[in-house]
Structures are given as structure tokens and as C-alpha cells.
Design a binder for these strands. Structure first.
Lengths: 108, 108
DNA sequence: ATGAAAGTTTCTAAATATAGAAACTATATT
DNA sequence: AATATAGTTTCTATATTTAGAAACTTTCAT
């Protein structure tokens, strides 16, 4: 997998952007640009919110803790299937959207 | 890849849910549950909005038209890398979020 | 400082995705 | 109906991901 150095934000940094509103955080409504990097961090963050160790999450997913570690550190580019399996085990919903940019020019 | 039969909506069906607001559609703000199925349909829909054939998109991504066809029909579970490559070629931003469900019970 | 628990890395094997090429099918257009 | 264009499927090869197991390292509590 080819990787590129990009400015990253820690999850907590990103989550700090949330606006507290009578108890419920809007945090989970915050949108992230899709990347394996952020996805891995989201898995870790969700696992921690569930108070699970990598081994426990592994058991829920049906894999070794080593797999969870690899996913969280985005050691490689996971398949959609794998991502879904993990979030399902965490009882988390993952939603997305696509937005076309304005600057597209179709060349002949 | 294991698949499951689920009730699906066509992209246009889904997009019909948008609320028109002075010219600009809110359509692109609509959120979809992550699945290879929907992802494939989004690629197709975005490609069509760009007025590209599968062959042309293939050229932009750097693959044969057959690959684009496979992705759009979700013949398999793509990797995040592949998904990103395609949306990048389409000059489209893909964002996501994760929401923890309430009904999680950690068993001992 | 020691020990236990949690997380990471490395090795190997197996499964799956990616890819091109070519044949095939479907869709339009005239 | 014939042709061109667009999209799909099949075949084969290669690359990559997934996975377990075990060794290793880090972190944390005492």
C-alpha cells in the first residue's frame, strides 16, 4: 500500500470540535474525510468507548487481537467487508456521503 | 465475499429524498449506510453525473473498463484504497461518520 | 522494580482483490 | 436490421489482505 504524509488530527483533537448540547454530544455527527488512517483511529476510538481490549474486540469479530491492532494502525488498506465486520461487532453505524467537486473538467 | 439479500433503494430513489433549496440540492448531504452495494451505486451515479463512460473513468483511474464495471456492480468487496482512487479520479469527496448504538452490552 | 495485561510485530499460509485481455451481451442510433 | 458504443463476464496471473501463532514491547498497577 502506498502511503502519503498528511497532516493528521488525533481523534480527541477532532472530537474536541463537537458542540456539547444538553448532555448529548454532537460529536458523532461530525464528518471525517474517508481514509484508512482515520478509519483505523475511529475503530480504536469506538473500541475504547466500548471499554474493550483489542483481544475482546477480536473475540467479538472472530479474529486474533493482532488483526485488530493492524486495523487500528492502518497497517494496510482494509476491505469494506472487514471494516463492516468490525463496526458491526462494536454495534456502530457507519454512514457516508459523496460530494462532487465543482472543478471537474472533462478533457476530450 | 458473502452477501446477504437486503431491501435496496435505487440511487435515484434515494436521491429523491433530497429537499430542493434555492437551486442547490441538498442531495449530496444525504447520508448512506456504508455497504459495498451502495458504494458501487454511488460510483456509478457519480460517473454518470460526470458524463463519463466506464472506459473513460477507467482511463482516469488507470484501469480497464472491466474494473469499473466490477466495482459498480460490487462484484467483490473493494479495498479502501481502490474506493479512494476512484472517487479521486471523479473529483469527489467522500466523508463518513460513525455512531455508536445504545444497545451495547459487554458480556463478561 | 516486578509482574500482569495490553498492544505490536514478524512469520507463514490461505483467501480474496486487482488487473488485463478478450469474448460476449446490451443499448442506441441510423 | 446493421453498426457502433457501452457495459459485462470469463479467464488467468499477480498483488494484497486476512488470519493465526508466537515472540516481542509497551503500559500500568502494585
Amino acid at each position: 500500500m502506498k502511503t502519503k504524509e498528511v497532516k493528521t488530527y488525533s481523534l480527541s483533537e477532532m472530537k474536541d470540535k463537537y458542540i456539547g448540547k444538553d448532555g448529548t454530544t454532537v460529536r458523532d455527527e461530525y464528518e471525517y474525510e474517508l481514509s484508512m488512517d482515520v478509519l483505523g483511529k475511529m475503530i480504536k476510538s469506538a473500541r475504547q468507548e466500548r471499554k474493550l481490549t483489542q483481544e475482546e474486540l477480536g473475540r467479538l469479530v472472530g479474529v486474533q487481537k493482532a488483526q485488530i491492532s493492524k486495523l487500528e494502525s492502518s497497517a494496510n488498506s482494509a476491505t469494506i467487508d472487514t471494516i463492516l465486520k468490525v463496526f458491526k461487532a462494536l454495534k456502530a453505524d457507519i454512514n457516508f456521503n459523496v460530494k462532487l467537486e465543482d472543478n471537474f473538467i472533462k478533457l476530450a
